[in-house]
Design a protein around this nucleic acid. Structure first.
Length: 373
RNA sequence: GCCCUGGUAGUAUAGCUCGGUCUAGUAUAGACGGCUGUCGCCCGUCCGACCCGGGUUCAAAUCCCGGCCAGGGCGCCA
């Protein structure tokens, strides 16, 4: 047995039979005096990275040996926080009558235009990976009134940044008989609740990560797009009205508003076709974004529930109403007014863990250049 | 898609500006030994690297070109 104990190496999987005793000599205050040792799995040395964490490896090296990387306390802490955040999200939404649903990942045509889709071969048809559950969740509120979905979606964007992925997890809700202000309240309360749950339930993990955050107070600040433009102008950043706000401008905003805030009343043309234009001024819509510092955490809005208007907006976006006939048909069945939003889960986890690179908070990230492991 | 930066042992880095004692330094990991009832304690010895191809030169880790790979930024988007 001594010989066997002598042959043990870092990362071996072993079974030990013996007597457990208290001791002051070990970090955990216990020791096992073995009567039998079994080697269950051996490890080939040298390992591709230092599991003790004394010599930190670069993100690329770590992702190539991700399961070993996950053995590090710091890495494990991130995903335990994610677990608690998801648990809290489900509890919060279920408590408020939202029903968890699952919509298709394989779809026949583009759901929103905008973001690029990954094509897939579906028997004798061309199909795509879903970029969002948007149209399906809207349809489902006719039956369930309030729904939510937590799942992976796909964007074939060429983005190469610390906050974009090709495959990401979206936390989506949709609610009937609701408008933007209603679902904004749900959103800010959810964020507060999740922050509270993580802060309370993940003290050890946050300590490992050496990261702290304050549970935000609600309501979050609300700024209109026009107010934001004025504020940026004051900082010497010029954004022409109607344009999306460029990333460098968001970074400036993040310095002025270092926590959560909403941006509302966006120009209609800068948002998706299904966002409702305001009655009194159709150039502006009922869409909103939830920001955390300079990062867009979530976006949502009041949806169009008039079929005619929806067709008009589709056409204005250069989309063909025929490709949306199954979706449009639903609007003939008594579609109630509704609103919803979507949170980029990974971005929320970045906020909760202090990680600066979105790949840190995904077990096996997929980005423009990474398809393995 | 455009732009910038970088590729030195298993890992992380020094060296590159101003080419030559670089037979490439250091840390950590690994092997072996010592020490301590244990240790992601300490000490010692050892092992191990210039991304690929071409060019310039008497001489290239170092300069130039191409490729590949990686990181980041922008646009787009969550």
């Amino acid at each position: 047995m001594i010989e066997k104990a002598d042959s043990l190496q870092t990362q071996f999987s072993i079974g030990v039979k013996g007597t457990v005793r208290r001791t002051e000599k070990t970090p955990r205050g216990i020791e096992i005096v073995p009567s039998e040792i079994r080697i269950l799995g051996i490890a080939q040395h040298p390992l591709p990275l230092d599991v003790t964490g004394r010599t930190p490896a670069e993100i690329d090296t770590r992702l190539n040996a991700r399961v070993l990387d996950l053995r590090r306390d710091e890495c494990g802490a991130v995903f335990r926080i994610e677990h608690v955040a998801l648990e809290a999200t489900r509890a919060f939404l279920s408590e408020r009558g939202f029903v968890e649903v699952h919509t298709p990942r394989i779809i026949a045509s583009a759901t929103e235009g905008g973001a690029a889709l990954f094509p897939v071969t579906y028997f004798e048809h061309d199909a795509f990976l879903a970029q969002s559950p948007q149209l399906y969740k809207e349809q489902l509120i006719m039956s369930f009134e309030k729904v939510f979905e937590i799942g992976s979606f796909f964007r074939a964007e060429e983005s190469h940044t610390r906050r974009h992925l090709s495959e990401f997890i979206s936390v989506d809700i949709e609610e009937a008989f609701a408008a933007a202000p209603d679902v904004m309240k749900v959103l800010e309360k959810l964020v507060r609740y999740v922050c509270g749950a993580v802060k309370k339930g993940c003290q050890r993990e946050l300590e490992i990560l050496k990261y702290r955050f304050d549970v935000p107070r609600t309501p979050f600040k609300r700024f209109t797009y026009d107010e934001i433009l004025k504020e940026l102008d004051g900082e010497g950043v010029d954004v022409p009205w109607g344009e999306d706000i460029p990333t460098p401008a968001f970074r400036t905003l993040g310095k002025i508003h270092p926590y959560f805030y909403f941006i509302t009343d966006w120009p209609t043309k800068s948002k998706a076709f299904y966002i409702n234009p305001q009655d009194e001024n159709p150039k502006v819509c009922e869409g909103f974004d939830l920001m955390w510092q300079w990062v867009e955490l979530a976006s949502g809005g009041t949806r169009i529930h008039s079929k005619d208007l929806l067709i008009k907006r589709l056409t204005e976006h250069g989309l063909h109403p025929e490709s949306f006939k199954f979706h449009l048909k639903v609007f003939d069945y008594g579609m109630p007014p509704h609103a919803g939003w979507a949170i980029g889960l990974e971005r929320l986890i970045m906020m909760l863990t202090g990680k600066k690179n979105i790949r840190e908070v995904v077990l096996f990230p997929r980005d423009r250049y990474r398809l393995t492991p």
